[in-house]
């Protein structure tokens, strides 16, 4: 697998403020990569470096094996980009805007544009200034997809979309990905990344704190687990077990959270007669919150 986006030691300072620090990241061809972090963590800064809108203080970026500084035009020819908080030419209609882009890029497949218009139920015949936020976002998405680029970079793509359109957007991303496009999505919405992405990078206060396949990350997740016994148990028996936290005992039931392997916990529980075990699968949201909880201590 070859690397489509390759970020090396990327640091960006604004005066004394360090927006991102020493980021190393590879996005492989064919991946749907989620760049997850709360607002202000440095997602947009990273993305805008890929597009050469801002220049690294330190480090380097290659996109499609091209240098982000010297070959930016070549890069931008081959990618689709949706800015966060997109600003569109308000006086134009969507159709005029898309035609303008066709004028700049050339060779647009208008049949595909019509398909996108229908699927997003986009209004492209009214001046953009009269459209709602969600309807503007649809036009932003269309212009990122419509020339079927090999890499699509999107900054908070579902901003303003209603739930139905979000689902349509997810389907479209998956279709584009099946056809070979690599997708890079930044988001602060964990379920979105979990739903869509094969791999996730978590950024916190300008630093990349984890890069992992979503499935593997879930395995590492903190899980909630409940044992119901045939008799009351004492809390002390389960304290100090590796990975076990937040123990609560209510009558015959023991509730706790566990990180990592459940072996020790199960063996301790085995000292009693276990009636049932309720275990919820870990989800990304908890992992995400865990990263932040740890980081903030």
């Amino acid at each position: 697998m070859d690397s489509v986006i390759s970020i090396r030691n990327l640091t960006k300072n604004y005066g004394k403020y360090r927006a991102i620090e020493d980021i190393n990241l590879d996005v492989m061809r064919g991946e749907i990569f989620g760049y997850l972090g709360p607002n202000g963590a440095g997602k947009t800064t990273t993305i805008r470096t890929l597009l050469d809108f801002i220049r690294p203080t330190k480090g380097s970026v290659t996109v499609l094996d091209l240098d982000s500084r010297t070959d930016s035009r070549q890069i931008r020819k081959r990618i689709g980009y949706l800015p966060g908080d997109i600003g569109l030419y308000e006086k134009m209609t969507g159709r005029q805007l898309l035609k303008y882009i066709d004028g700049l890029r050339g060779g647009l497949d208008w049949h595909f544009v019509r398909q996108l218009t229908e699927r997003f139920e986009a209004n492209i015949d009214q001046p953009i200034r009269t459209l709602s936020r969600g309807n503007k976002q649809k036009i932003g998405l269309m212009q990122a997809f419509m020339h079927t680029p090999e890499l699509i970079i999107m900054d908070e793509p579902t901003n303003g979309l209603d739930p139905l359109m979000q689902q349509e957007f997810y389907r479209l991303v998956e279709e584009m990905n099946k056809k070979g496009a690599t997708i890079f999505i930044s988001s602060h919405i964990v379920p979105e990344i979990e739903r869509l992405c094969s791999k996730v990078g978590i950024i916190r206060k300008g630093k990349l704190v984890a890069v992992e396949e979503v499935e593997k990350l879930k395995e590492k997740a903190i899980r909630k687990i409940t044992f119901v016994f045939d008799e009351p148990v004492s809390k002390e028996e389960f304290e100090n077990l590796p990975g076990v936290r937040d123990i609560e005992v209510e009558g015959n039931a023991l509730k706790c959270t566990i990180k990592g392997t459940v072996d020790a916990l199960v063996k301790a529980a085995g000292m009693h007669k276990v009636i049932k075990i309720i275990s919820a699968d870990g989800n990304l949201e908890e992992i995400f919150l865990d990263f932040y909880a740890v980081g903030n201590k």
């Binding site: 805008r48 597009l51 809108f53 930016s72 035009r73 070549q74 931008r76 020819k77 689709g80 980009y81 800015p83 908080d85 997109i86 600003g87 569109l88 030419y89 308000e90 882009i101 700049l104 890029r105 932003g140 212009q143 990122a144």
Partner: peptide, 14 residues
Amino acid sequence: ENGTLDFLLAHPLT
């Protein structure tokens, strides 16, 4: 300031 420059320069223009 209108935010359209990002949009414009996302396309292959120097």
